[in-house]
Write a protein that binds this DNA or RNA. Structure first.
Length: 424
RNA sequence: GUGGGUGUAGCUCAGUUGGCAGAGCACCGGAUUGUGGCUCCGGAUGUCGAGGGUUCAAGCCCCUUCACUCACCCCA
């Protein structure tokens, strides 16, 4: 029996990978215009980093981390998300001393031990961005604008930007108490999960899909109505800037977060096209996080996009076929050898050239050239070879002409207008 | 962790009350010497997910197991 891959960890095959490359390229271009620099951090970190940042009682830390001891007995974990490692690096290298604002983006695999389903995998990929050092609502609006622009340029429609504010250490405890009290008298109608956690994580009930919880929380107090003065004006300004930039959004005061570090502005880019996975990007402000992992008191805001989910939404519509410029069809050993050398000369010039390595008939070489989508086919037989020429067939026009082999390079470069950029 | 669905050719899937393993697509070859697409003709391909059981006989029935998938939970 052959060895299969690990459950929930997928291969990205030719034909799919083009979509990923498109998404990554689009993100790099958009993020660059907003002044973000890439940062690359390791895939494993000390387990403690995630416990302290994400929260000891979150599902991620409690039951979803790939944690293990290395050979010296330290507990390390495959990263379940990207923000904590990036903040760790920022603190470790004191990047905040180089500039008062740091705009960083990252991309790479994350790991969570969950049951896989559509749009949810054990190894998944996130592309995220973080702004650290400034808590002005303009920064929130910039991040949201960048996210919006990414979706526009990536051509992903059918998504909605939802925003909320979760308050800060000033106002959240009071709201939380209020909500606990509200839930307490309605415990009977809550689902088992919400009953169990109404004290530890009451916000979760607002987001619960069970009909009982939906009904029970219909009249629940809204976070937005209980923000402190600072959070309320902050949220108001963010909304004002979004309106000013004509960025569409919806306020969703029942949006909650799975990670403990979020404060004030939170947001999600949601879709209805991915089964039960409705978030394709999510993020928010995390003003206490850097200090919590042992750094200075720096505010921050960021988001992460799920590449698998983006790729599912995008499908393969973005993929344009990469056609070979030329296919060299040689007949007989001598012609085949000569074709091989010619092919290499073309490739060295940056032209995509292909040939047959299996000594097939001309007919089947033509078929293959057609299948690959070659623009031109060079037909080289014994006769042509002896006089130093060949037939160059234009596959789209279905016409062909004689060319001298020593002219082939210049003819092809002229036709395809393609010279390797790094040569000149 | 819990529940449902599905495992048959490279892919998508048929397969009758248990009786020789099938189709379409894809692939390969051919249709007057060396010319693609369209058409036509021909060809190869299987551990029927795995293991066990019942039976003269199992893709089909029974048991076990694994994988994939969707949903719950949770999240990107």
């Amino acid at each position: 029996m052959s060895i299969a891959g690990i459950k929930g960890m997928n291969d990205i095959l030719p034909g799919e990978v083009e979509t990923w490359q498109f998404l990554e390229k689009t993100a790099r271009e958009v993020f660059r215009t907003y002044g973000f620099s890439e940062i690359r951090v390791p895939v494993v970190e000390k387990t403690e980093l995630f416990c302290r940042s994400i929260g000891e009682t979150t599902d991620i830390v409690e039951k979803e981390m790939y944690s293990f001891e290395d050979r010296s007995g330290n507990s390390i974990s495959l990263r379940p998300e990207g923000t904590a490692p990036v903040m760790r690096a920022l603190v470790q290298h004191k990047l905040y001393n180089l500039d008062s604002i740091n705009k960083l983006y990252y991309s790479g695999p994350m790991f969570r031990y969950e049951r896989p389903q559509k749009g949810r995998y054990r190894q998944f990929h996130q592309l995220g961005a973080e702004v650290v050092g400034v808590d002005d609502p303009k920064v929130d609006a910039q991040v949201l604008a960048m996210l919006d622009q990414f979706f526009q340029e990536a051509g992903i429609a059918d998504v909605e930007l939802q925003i909320n504010s979760l308050g800060c250490p000033e106002c959240r405890p009071a709201y939380r108490d209020l909500l606990v009290a509200y839930l307490e008298v309605r415990l009977e109608s809550l689902c088992d999960d919400c009953k169990r956690r109404y004290r530890t994580n009451p916000l979760r009930a607002l987001d619960c899909k069970s009909t009982g919880c939906k009904a029970a929380t219909a009249e629940a107090p809204s976070v937005l109505a209980h923000l402190c003065c600072g959070c309320d004006t902050h949220f108001g300004k963010v909304r004002g800037y979004l309106d000013g930039m004509n960025i569409p959004y919806a306020v969703n005061d029942r949006m909650v977060r799975g990670l403990d570090y979020y404060t004030k502005t939170t947001f999600e880019m949601v879709t209805t096209r991915l089964g039960s996975q409705n978030a394709v990007a999510a993020g928010g402000r995390y003003d206490g996080l850097v200090k919590q992992i042992g750094g200075p008191a720096l505010s921050g805001i960021g988001f992460a996009m799920g590449l698998e989910r983006l790729a599912l939404l995008k499908g393969d519509e973005a993929v344009v076929r990469d056609r070979p410029e030329i296919f060299l069809a040689g007949l007989g050993e001598a012609a085949s050898d000569r074709s091989f050398l010619l092919m290499q000369e073309l490739q060295r010039q940056g032209l995509r050239a292909e040939m047959d390595f299996e000594g097939r008939s001309l007919k089947s070489q033509m078929r293959r050239a057609d299948k690959l989508g070659a623009r031109y086919v060079l037909i080289l037989g014994e006769d042509e070879l002896s006089r130093g020429g060949a037939e160059l067939r234009d596959m789209d026009a279905a016409t062909q002409e004689d060319v001298q082999l020593d002219q082939l390079l210049s003819v092809m470069i002229e036709r395809c207008g393609l010279v390797r950029r790094d040569k000149a």
